[in-house]
Write a protein that binds this DNA or RNA. Structure first.
Length: 150
DNA sequence: GCCAACGTTGGC
DNA sequence: GCCAACGTTGGC
């Protein structure tokens, strides 16, 4: 079992939206490293920190889990979608995703609080210049965060 | 809105 | 394959 942090803009899909949706495709990832994490490393049942980004209070807002293995992101084929990719074909899709199921909303563990905690200082998402929307979380980091959110 | 940092594109 | 130019992310 692996652990992940996945960023979502709350004005697109917030933790409340995700809880209402249930298991839903994590569409719109257009970065190869993030795609590869979903395609190659995610397994059903992996733990996910649901992170709110590009908003007034960035931070972990809830907990979720990976709910499917990877399959093509339908939005890449839709000319009307913001995520349309003209270079992608049905036979050879570029972008894959997994379903993610939010399991609970937590208090907001802010980015600032995460930065203040020495035991989280090695988190990939906190590294200088890190912009990846999906990053791995170690079991120790996961445990620390679960305790902070308990 | 600013801007640092990183990723992608495309000419050569 | 190099790398300049451009685009995007995302915190502040």
């Amino acid at each position: 079992m692996n652990f992940w942090l996945m960023k979502s803009e709350p004005n697109e899909v917030s933790i409340d939206d995700a809880l209402r949706l249930g298991a839903a495709p994590w569409f719109g990832v257009r970065n190869y490293q993030a795609r590869n994490f979903m395609r190659d490393q995610m397994r059903v049942g992996d733990g996910v920190l649901f992170y709110h980004s590009s908003c007034a209070e960035p931070g972990v807002a809830g907990v979720a889990e990976v709910a499917s293995t990877a399959y093509p992101d339908a939005t890449q084929f839709d000319p009307d979608s913001h995520y349309f990719d003209p270079k992608s074909t049905l036979e050879n899709p570029r972008w894959m995703l997994v379903d993610v199921k939010a399991t609970r909303k937590t208090r907001l563990l802010s980015l600032a609080e995460m930065r203040e905690n020495p035991s989280l200082s090695s988190m990939v998402v906190l590294q200088k210049g890190s912009r990846l929307s999906i990053t791995p979380v170690t079991p120790a980091e996961w445990k620390t965060i679960m305790q902070l959110l308990a």
